[in-house]
């Protein structure tokens, strides 16, 4: 939770690099990942081995991205507690360790695929791609301003906390700490309002009249189509292999 801002910076840095995957159109990448996720999700969690062939196209993607593999693998592991918990419960209940492993593999592979998507696509392009795929303009605008002001507001909150700590070192009764924390949140809430007003004013000054016109993504190239087709076939093929028990 605490170092989230740093994590998002790291992923932004990844997304600015260059590779075959980085150069693909955001829409084709989103669709490819969705097809892959469906293939993974529809594989019954019989045993972890079932997911070996499924992971192959993903492994190819990870290698093609040129991103630091170790860091990707580590970062995707933040989702592990969830499947581990339920896998463990299943194990304890019916002694089915295979199922536990399969559940973990299934959700870890899925998380890794989404992480790869974010690692090879700058946020701005991703949002434009989602717009191209039919996400309403309002949602795109909200997402954009959310990302844009995330750091600004979080930094503001951090500065307020530091100032409070400087005054009294975080000491005090629980009641006074509560009062201070809620007071700080209220002030931050007010600042967010003021920030939004400033932004809105700046938008109006530049000709905004309530209807947001997002930039459309560039044309999808034939190469993007080929990429999507190959990715989808790879996902389908891997799913077939998983199904016949290879």
């Amino acid at each position: 939770m605490r170092d989230r801002a740093g994590k998002s910076l790291r992923i932004e840095e990844w997304a600015r690099r260059d590779s075959f995957l980085h150069r693909r159109d955001a829409r084709s990448k989103v669709l490819a990942v969705l097809v892959f996720l469906v293939a993974v999700s529809s594989t019954p969690p019989a045993s972890p081995a079932v997911f070996v062939p499924i992971a192959l196209p993903l492994a190819a993607g990870l290698l093609a991205s040129g991103l630091p593999l170790g860091e990707l693998l580590l970062r995707a592991s933040i989702i592990l507690p969830f499947p581990l918990f339920f896998g463990l419960v299943g194990w304890l209940e019916n002694g089915n360790a295979q199922f536990a492993g399969a559940l973990v593999a299934r959700s870890y592979i899925s998380a890794l695929a989404v992480l790869l998507l974010a690692g090879v696509t700058p946020m701005a392009e991703l949002f434009r791609g989602l717009r191209g795929l039919g996400l309403p303009a309002v949602m795109v605008m909200v997402l954009q301003s959310l990302v844009r002001y995330l750091q600004v507001i979080v930094d503001h909150g951090m500065r307020m906390r530091r100032a409070a700590l400087c005054r009294d070192g975080g000491a005090g009764s629980r009641e006074s700490l509560w009062r201070r924390a809620s007071g700080a949140l209220a002030v931050l809430f007010g600042r967010s309002y003021a920030r939004a007003e400033g932004v809105h004013r700046a938008m109006i000054a530049r000709g905004f009249r309530g209807d947001y016109v997002p930039l459309r993504p560039a044309r999808i190239t034939p190469l993007d189509w080929v990429f999507l087709a190959v990715a989808a076939m790879a996902a389908g093929g891997a799913r077939y292999l998983a199904g016949v028990g290879l």
């Binding site: 946020m123 701005a124 301003s145 002001y149 920030r195 400033g198 932004v199 930039l215």
Partner: peptide, 17 residues
């Protein structure tokens, strides 16, 4: 109109946009 706080003014995800 160039506003005082550039963070108000630059509200899009990238400079070009």
């Amino acid at each position: 109109y160039v506003f005082q706080d550039a963070d108000d003014q630059l509200f899009m995800p990238t400079v070009l946009e």
